[in-house]
Write a protein that binds this DNA or RNA. Structure first.
Length: 494
RNA sequence: CGGGAUGUGGCGCAGUCCGGUAGCGCACCUGGUUUGGGACCAGGGGGUCCCAGGUUCGAAUCCUGGUAUCCCGACCA
């Protein structure tokens, strides 16, 4: 039992905030809205990065890096884009400080005012398309498939660790294509990459869909997304992939000579991203009142070995066994931490690794040495078993880790299924949305922004997406009664 | 940016109404006993009580003005 971790059922937000801090993932920084990602939290992010990066490379993308600062004028080149981001941009106006004449430390030097102010990127479409203008001349230069790992800044009014911070880490893919269809295919492909990553690594089932006009990325023609359900019944947008049409090509005059006689055409663009928000998704989807529950594929270490000993001699004997186990597991690609510190007691360590979500804990004590066994505990189900230390041991642990990964996923899937509902009247709709349990509500919608807006104002629920696998079905909008050809997904969202 | 709350050793808090030598728990350090689910005993170190003014013989406490953080709304990945 972790000492005083708040209960999810009592205060979900408090539980989340405390868990992030106590599990040593991140903490608030001196700067409002920003966070310090601590080594344990960053290790998880690094695993996400490594996996995603490989998936991007496998689909033909290359990494590059574009600058943090964007000339203010760039942002205004695409009308919707500036509209969407203007209100949350940090702006650099000066480039020098000087000593205050009254001895109050340093002050901004008014003589060092920038000719053109720079904004700290909230996203990089504009700088990148400004470069693409020079990189693309002919159909031979296409497709251009670039990704960058970067930080961005959005001056948010209200922030929460990982879920919404003023500065966050992410990757942003930016591609350019010769045809509309190719760009759409790319957009869909990357949504699918995200969905695969979420399901296979985060152990998090997601809905794939398209955003409505009002939820769409500023400057996109279509925004595809993956939406996940958290344990408090609220939806979390876990990744987005945008079909940009020719909007940025036109704004930055990016044209190519086509294959058919060299006529100049505007290129078609996409952009797509996932951020450190995925950390929030990971935490909120699986963890319990005892602490973090990490899927083995993303845990900084998958197995921890805790020795139980009284004397130095005993520790030496146990260490011999522990190190052999560690080596054996390593051969199966399993990452292991052997915690032989004598500064903390076993019970303390058990609680600690439970809080930090280590998938498997192996305890070895004197009794085990006698019996040729070890105690194996799995974090997800909080079950303990005594296992024989035989030739199959490493193999068995490997199977166990796979089983944990799958069990966590199935549990999340079951939760989502139990919290997915159909509503055919507005009363029914409101009842589900306002319930404690929350969840996804599939309902007919007349397709208008007005209705969407009214539902949002009245219930706080928004359309998370129009599912990609939406079934055709005649129906009536739950709000207006106007005809509809399929259900969309509503939920309260982060 | 509106409404509310809170700033006191590293962390969590009491003390503030009613001004009078700054306290508790955790963590930390030392010694000893302990070690199969967050050990115990003894001793010890650590604070410009958010900042700046003011009232007072005397301010963590009262007054004025800042500022920061958190929660609730509007906005957002």
């Amino acid at each position: 039992m972790s000492k005083g971790l708040p209960k999810r059922s009592e205060d979900y937000s408090l539980w989340y905030n405390e868990l992030v801090k106590r599990a040593d993932l991140a903490e608030n920084s001196a700067v409002r809205g920003c966070m310090v990602i601590k080594p344990y939290g960053y290790a998880i992010w690094e695993k996400m990065q490594a996996t995603l990066d490989e998936m991007f490379k496998d689909t033909g993308h290359s990494n590059a890096y574009f600058p943090l600062f964007i000339p203010k004028s760039y942002l205004s080149k695409e009308a919707d884009h500036v509209e969407g981001f203007a209100k949350e941009c940090a702006v650099v106006t000066h480039y020098r400080l000087k000593n205050d004449e009254n001895g109050n430390g340093v002050v901004v030097d008014p003589d060092a005012k920038l000719e053109e102010e720079l904004i700290v990127r909230p996203t990089s479409e504009t700088v990148i398309w400004n470069s693409y203008k020079n990189w693309i001349q002919s159909y031979r230069d296409l497709p251009l498939l670039i990704n960058q790992w970067a930080n961005v800044v959005r001056w948010e009014m209200r922030t929460r660790l990982f879920l919404r911070t003023a500065e966050f880490l992410w990757q942003e893919g930016h591609t350019a294509h010769a045809t509309r269809q190719e760009a759409i295919d790319e957009t869909v492909q990357m949504m699918n990459v995200y969905a695969t990553f979420a399901e296979e690594y985060l152990a998090l089932p997601v809905l794939k869909g398209v955003k409505t006009e009002s939820e769409r990325f500023a400057g996109a023609e279509d925004t595809y997304c993956i939406e996940a359900l958290m344990q408090d019944g609220k939806a979390l947008q876990a990744g987005t992939s945008h079909f940009l049409g020719q909007n940025f090509a036109k704004a930055f005059d990016v044209k190519f000579a086509n294959k058919e006689g060299g006529a100049m055409e505007y290129v078609w663009g996409t952009s797509w991203g996932v951020s450190t928000r995925l950390m929030g998704a990971l935490i909120m989807a699986h963890s319990d009142d005892n602490g973090l529950v990490l899927p083995p594929k993303l845990a900084p270490f998958q197995v921890v070995i805790v020795p139980i000993f009284r004397s130095e001699e005993q520790l030496a004997e146990i260490s011999e066994v522990a190190n052999k186990i560690k080596a054996d597991l390593k051969k199966f690609g399993i990452s292991v931490k052997y915690d032989d510190r004598d500064t903390h007691k076993p019970g303390w360590k058990f609680a600690e690794y439970e809080l930090k979500g280590t998938p498997v804990r192996i305890a070895i004590g004197p009794k085990d040495l006698e019996n040729g066994t070890v105690e194996v505990a799995r974090r997800d189900l909080l079950e303990k078993n005594v296992m024989p230390m035989d030739d199959d041991f490493a193999q068995n642990i490997s199977v166990l880790l796979d089983n944990i990964q799958d069990t966590i996923y199935q549990k999340a899937l079951k939760y989502r299924e139990e919290h997915s509902f159909k509503a055919d009247s507005y009363d029914e709709f409101k009842k589900i949305i306002s319930s404690e349990a929350g969840g996804f509500v599939y309902a007919h919608w007349d397709g208008t922004a007005e209705t969407e807006e009214k539902i949002k104002n009245e219930t706080k629920a928004t359309i998370r997406c129009i599912p990609i696998d939406q079934v055709e079905e005649e129906g009536k909008c739950v709000y207006s009664g106007a005809p509809s050809k399929g259900r969309v997904v509503f939920a309260k969202a982060y």
